[in-house]
Amino acid sequence: MNDTPQPDVVYFNLGRVWTIALNTLVEVTRQKVFYFMIVFALLMIAAANFFSIFTFGEEAQHTLQLKFIKDTGLGAIGIFGAIIAIVATAQLLPAELENHTIYTILAKPVHRSEFLLGKFAGSALLLVISVMFMGALFLSVVFLKERHLAATNHHQTIELAESALANQKDIPPAAKEQILTQARQKADQLVADIHKTAGYSGIVKALVATLVKLLLVAAITLMLSTFATSLVFTVVVSAMLYFAGHLEPVAQRFYAGSQTVAGKLMSAIITWVVPNLAAFDLADDLFAGTPLAWLKVLKIVSYGAFYLLVTLTLAHLFFRQREI
């Protein structure tokens, strides 16, 4: 009879992942850079209203003004979100190693995969909260601008008809009433058009896609930090991959037409390995007149989920080999 005690098998536990995630969230929200980024982003979104004064052209005035606001808002969320995703995530593992806290955690019955997933989940929570904050302010700015444009255009259209009628004394009252009714209808149509141009559903879709892109950027950064020995390396390479991801469609074309071995090799790496981050930018579709259906947005989200799975699997494979 064998009396030697069998080691307890520790199964993967989501509860532990959640605990690590919450701790990570607290940890990253303590970083001052996060607040700087959030404040800058909020200021830029709020200031988007002022950029709209640069529009010109009478007919498309409201379309352009709303476009400027939407582009600036989505741009601010994209750029500051990416900075938060890279900077906050890149520090997670190095900080644990530097403070030696990772030894205490991994000495307990915690899998490395739980630790890694918890770190990612904490970073993801931060991004979700940030995008929600920025998105709420962004939608408010668009809403206020839409209200303002609708009220101004409605008022101007009717006032124009009334002042034109005031100069025409010999028009019978019935004809006057008809002209005013037509002006009111035109004003209502203009208001409906402005509301349609605001396109809240399209904005929400763009925010969802941006969030998925930021999660992917965070996952890539985390994966790099599992084997990187320096924080600078992780941040720089993550930023480069961010640009490469947006360049991916260009690389695909280059790959198809490249004649040199080096060119073919570089573009092949980007084409076959780097995710196409441009696929998550829905700003162009917002103005194409044919906003994407939710089903197509879901397809983009699944593309992001697929790459998240790939990246986190790679991160796990790298991290389990790492000597700590």
């Binding site: 529009t55 939407k70 582009d71 989505l74 750029i79 640009f243 981050l277 700003a283």
Partner: peptide, 18 residues
């Protein structure tokens, strides 16, 4: 542009055209 801010770049150029 390479950072994915295509629409924003277009707007900035539009302002420059203005």
């Amino acid at each position: 542009l390479l950072g994915g801010f295509r629409a924003l770049v277009a707007d900035l150029l539009w302002i420059a055209a203005h």
